[in-house]
Design a protein around this nucleic acid. Sequence first.
RNA 1: GGGCCCGUAGCUCAGCUGGUUAGAGCGCCGCGCUUACACCGCGGAUGCCGGGGGUUCGAGUCCCUCCGGGCCCACCA
Length: 882
Amino acid sequence: MTDALRPDPARPTDGATPGDLRPAVQAPAKVSLDGLEDRWDAAWTEAGTYAFDRTAERAAVYSIDTPPPTVSGSLHVGHVFSYTHTDLVARFHRMRGRQVFYPMGWDDNGLPTERRVQNYYGVRCDPALPYVPHFEPPHGGEGSQSVRAADQVPISRRNFVELCERLTAEDEKQFEALWRHLGLSVDWTHHYQTIDARAQAVAQTAFLRNLARGEAYQAEAPGLWDVTFQTAVAQAELEARDYPGHYHRVAFHPVHGGPGAVGDGEAPAPIYIETTRPELLPACVALVAHPDDERYQHLFGTSVTTPLFGVEVPVLAHPAAEPDKGAGIAMCCTFGDLTDVQWWRELQLPTRSVVGRDGRLLRETPDWITSATGVGVYAGIAGATAFSARAVVVDALRASGDLDGEPTPTTRKTNFFEKGDKPLEIVTSRQWYIRNGGRPAEGRDLRAELIARGDELAFHPDFMRVRYHNWVGGLNGDWLISRQRFFGVPIPVWYPVGPDGTPDVASPIVPAEADLPVDPSSQPAPGYTEAQRGVPGGFVGDPDVMDTWATSSLTPQIAGGWLADPDLFARVFPMDLRPQGQDIIRTWLFSTVVRSHLEHGSLPWAHAAISGWILDPDRKKMSKSKGNVVTPMGLLTEHGSDAVRYWAASARLGTDAAFEVGQMKIGRRLAIKILNASKFALSFAGDEGVSLDPAAVAAPLDRAVLAALADVVETATAAFEAYDHTRALEVTETFFWTFCDDYLELVKDRAYGSGTDDGAAPDPAGVASARTTLAIALDVLLRLFAPVLPFATEEVWSWWRTGSVHRAPWPTAAHLRAAAAGADPALVTVAGTALAALRKVKSQAKVSQRTEIVRAELAVPADAAERLRAAFDDLRAAGRVR
RNA sequence: GGGCCCGUAGCUCAGCUGGUUAGAGCGCCGCGCUUACACCGCGGAUGCCGGGGGUUCGAGUCCCUCCGGGCCCACCA
């Protein structure tokens, strides 16, 4: 048999664990789900039910790299959905005997927090301002009003960071309350924040080691830039969106007398290009066409002048130019798009940037514009936004006759920062990068290495691995990790300042690992005093912080105690499971693999469980606004946590699921049914208590039902092992309803021990067999349901057992098979079908099911008849057949 | 343009490596206050398995193709 079915040698085997039995059953007269969440959350915390035993060896540990939710984002049902999936796995493995390392983290650094703090407190960060002790923000505490940017009070970076910490602490309380109410079996003593000192130390250490190994480097290069947030943006944070614009057909003029001059004296025909960004004309450095394009062969090597600005630029050939796009010849500007960057680099063109970091055209007239007309036109656009500069340039082109026809509307895909709402510009800046295989590096093929790592990882479901493959295969640059923001982990380097006051960025000063974390903008570089900051012969701190992914790519290391607790780390790393959403495979999953590969030479985890989206009933991805209408806590209180968990557990990994209240109601019904059926099954325990003695199981029907349950255990176990929680739930649930509807009804009278209608005395062995079977089945069913319905199962467990069902061993088929003594499970089906036939007669006769049947004849196949005889008395009793 | 997932009863979904009359729950219709459960129980009806080809003794299940839905990547002249 597979591993899946082998009991863990370190634990007692499943089955009856008589020491757990209470002397007397304490089921309430009226069962209820109300209030179970708070009661059991408190009890589990009190008992340390989910505490991780850190003395366990690695092989006995199951470790989970929990996704740290963005605390400044809003909670929505999608969180409840995917975090439930993780909890199912955690609970299963805990019951299988593993020590489950299940920490919780909060992702609280980065832009979302900054933005929320600005709006919430009505402040904005101005790093030039001094720190104000005991600063109280003008707003805050009274809700989530949004303060207009113009009304935001400027405060120092340290004050700003303090407010970030204050607000995230509040948010984190809300999250913890939700997770507890949902029943996540997290060990709350293991939690972290992506901005806490430990996380900062890990992030900075990992960065410095990358730097020492040559995997981190800084480069001055054109890159994607968000003009709203005024920060560089990484490839992984891009989002292509439709963006309306216009094609402008613009004339460039061949240079008279140049090498390509045509004829003498006649003005050569202009060359027309098409552009959607005429405002970049002053940044034009060349015209580019495909080398094989016959229309432009005679122009390659010649020069043209730009309209309006009169700057002479060459006409060049490059294979990236597409003959069927626009006019087939493009104007290359520094920089309009990434193709421009490619041409600029590969054709070694000059840099003539005109767009500044604020998204406006440079205020100074660029020195390459010398013509009177050019200077005049530029004066009209200096300092303007790209949008308004465009209108000015178009008017000027129209006036000069260089605009052929009128602009024609078009829609194209344009790169946006995923959190921004203005198209990205390309700006040259000095940034930090970590190698991720996106750019060739000397001496190693990192891309191939990372693809190989991805192949080692078990994706659930497997088809999600193609997203990893596609992403790694399509990378077009290394990972840009520096951000020009405030609330984040600082880049831990300083630069010496030369005698002329210029920082030497090529010689970063790094701190000792033992001193981490550091903040170079408030702490002096090693060997310097704060008074030397910014002065000649002194130092400056790198002003940037790391991108949030640069920290969260280290969650296994942060949570697992890398550096701070090597003993713990050795017991949990590489981890077993990374659960996460499909949308962040290219970011979180990939970047975590990169860091682990570079630092540890291994995968960070063996399995990745990918949850799907929650969809509205109209099949659209559930929008944030709608998600906010239905608050997760509201859902949990309305339907009960078990019910909501049931809904989540009904959806397979990797598959989008509908937000369906109906499914939650079914879950609630199941949970209540468990309470009631359990109360019933336990009601037969007399003063002698409950018996789980398999030897007492004698009746053929009783043995058959345990044989059927053994099959269920095997299937459910194998399914959970394969990360298929829906199958495990489905098979358990199907059995349970049949158990209640048929088996329970069939053995009811026998279990009562009330004898037959004609007064015959009950058979004591038959009574004991029924009662014992009920208890054994209940014992197993509660454990099978425990991962999905932790509250209802724990409630029932407490009526007749000591300890927690969540620490009880996962059931195995072996002891059930022993009790079943080789019985054929089909008898349950046969007897159930026969009972249904008797019910149908009464239903169609429109009489109560209680009505007695004087005489019944069942036409059944021979083999079924043989079986049925074994359950004949039970059938007669349940059908009230005289 | 490249790739992935999906299309099965009104709805949400199962149908594993192809094998007897295609399943579940919800909803719907009818019956029933039966000492576990009325937050319930019992019974019933419901499907050109997106269309079309093909492979096969046999296809919801495999192959091709088309249609429809969703998603990822590329695409700013």
